[in-house]
Design a protein around this nucleic acid. Structure first.
Lengths: 190, 190, 190, 190
DNA sequence: GATGAATGAGTATTCATTCAT
DNA sequence: AATGAATGAATACTCATTCAT
């Protein structure tokens, strides 16, 4: 039994990553998924709901990973490294997902869902909380504003992904985490 | 005599920053500009051309500033500080512009446009070149890949702007450059 | 099950014959066909494509008739009479079609179309070829240029239809073929 | 002093013959006439009025010629020959005018003018009247319906012009009148 | 659940016409 | 009279969504 919802999510990732959400037709997603348009609407409320589900899906993956990381007894840098490795590996394995995570912003017309916004808010928030703890533990210089630092880190991640995609350079995704960690470590520690 | 093109650009910035490019109707831009729809098309090829012009306009501003900075004899950090101060001041004075610069990505349907892409490419490129020079001059640790570093810096800037907008916190735009410079200085220098 | 394409063709004939192609709105055709506007575009590329299809449809009818006539062993005058009877009968049964065939000329904006032109070219061409054969067989005075004669005949036909429509005089369509044949016979024979 | 109205009429003939009335923009006519769009509206009520004026202008030319012909004491065939020679000469000298006379039909949106219709009605009407007189004088077989005959003649003329234009064959315009007269003479006389 | 033809609201764009200069 | 920028009504066409099969 093929999971139709998964089929459609994957097809949507493929098409939307190439054309962007607004230039993607539901009919194209249906075609890519080898499914009738009507079928999409058996699994999704509307077109926006598909994009939303993509973000929800990716956010959940990352939340699960973060939870796992949290259970281990690691310092801030070790945690960050583990998360970056996970995030970049995911994108390396499916560049199209990376494109979407980096390019799609939310201007919701209709209320209801909003995992895009949740993704874009929650990851920096977690970083912020971790930074606060790290400051408490003296791992990080207390003079820095954790909110700003968190968004610098999140922005850096997005910036690298964006560049790697533009260059079609998967290798950059391999090298970048280490370099980013090094810069941040030196930059934020003392 | 009012410059109609400027009038329309400003109106478009206002509307598009709130609703996003795809959810903005030309009629709304016209209304905001106190101009007839048809008038827009006397100055712009199509809707996309307006967004394009916004990016072109902002890019040119920044290029002019960078040129001025280049003429002074400054080290990398002084240059970066000057540019950041300029960029953040601009956005502070017109948050709407910041929203657009940070949110709009390019999925061009019709050719002829593409200052969006130019903006998103040129700024990191300039940073990259400056980093290379800085490495030459020993201002920056040579072990870092200037391409990656440049995109970390650009990503950081975008990340801060995005957060400041989300929080509607102009104050963040004041504090952030100093903090960012400090982190990067320590992080990249040695 | 109703054939939607046929439904739309007939509706378009009705509306376009009254208002002309350029003054006909797709929404009017849709209304006449008891169909949504969008449905039209499931069957036709664009508005021009509808007109084109009308000409294609009528041309095919006449080509089929001409083929049938050709298979019988008739002289030029008998053939011409049969064709005229068919053509005028068709128009008598649907004046609207006659109006379109006589009034619409082609100034194509988009390529891909052009059965209008084909209709306006092919009928005279066939007449020309038949005239050439008739000259060979001595049925027609060889001093006449068959190209000119063919277009005189085609023009005569169009002229009669145009007048009959203007007068709303179906009777004229009954009488005309006989009279036209008589004139041409005497005029062209010797 | 250049007569602006004439300038515009000529420009309109040029452009409309190529693109057809509905595909011709007033701005194109203005450009061809080396005149501002606004100027057109100093001389013409609206776009339709230009086309109308073209037909009016050409109709008047032909009416003048017919008047002149009438003053001479000629039989039907001599008159017809003179008129055909005039009409075809005119078109030979300005093919663009011929294209318009043959292609443009009237589907008036707004009431008011209608020289197109007048042209398309009056010429056949005059032919009809002349035919009636000719029948009276025994120049033409009385068994023919003069209305039908008149429209056959008018249709023939239009048919020849249309073909000559399609072939870009001015020569055809030279040869055709003689041939047409000959056919008609034999066809209609007895 | 799956299908895809039918729907019709929604909108970018055009272009005849106007009118202030 | 001449200009051409400004106007905004008009409309072809699209495409997300529905629903009968």
């Amino acid at each position: 039994m093929t999971d139709k919802k998964e089929l459609i999510r994957k097809a949507a990732v493929e098409v939307m990553s190439k054309k962007g959400f607004y230039n993607t037709k539901t009919s194209e997603v249906a075609k890519e998924a080898n499914v009738a348009v009507g079928t999409i609407y058996n699994y999704f409320k509307n077109k926006e709901d598909i994009l939303n589900y993509i973000f929800k899906y990716e956010l959940e993956k990352r939340m699960k990973n973060l939870k796992k990381i949290k259970q281990q007894n690691l310092n801030f840098w070790e945690k960050l490294e583990k998360f970056l490795n996970f995030h970049f590996k995911e994108i390396k394995e499916n560049i199209a997902v990376g494109e979407i995570l980096v390019r799609e912003k939310d201007f919701p017309k209709k209320e209801g869902s909003d995992s895009i916004n949740e993704y874009l808010t929650m990851i920096p928030e977690i970083l912020e909380n971790e930074l606060k703890d790290a400051i408490q533990r003296g791992e990080i210089n207390e003079s820095y504003d954790p909110e700003i630092s968190a968004n610098i880190i999140f922005g850096s991640i997005q910036g690298i992904v964006e560049k790697a995609i533009k260059n079609e350079d998967k290798n950059m995704l391999m090298k970048a985490p280490e370099e980013l960690i090094m810069i941040l470590k030196k930059g934020l520690r003392e």
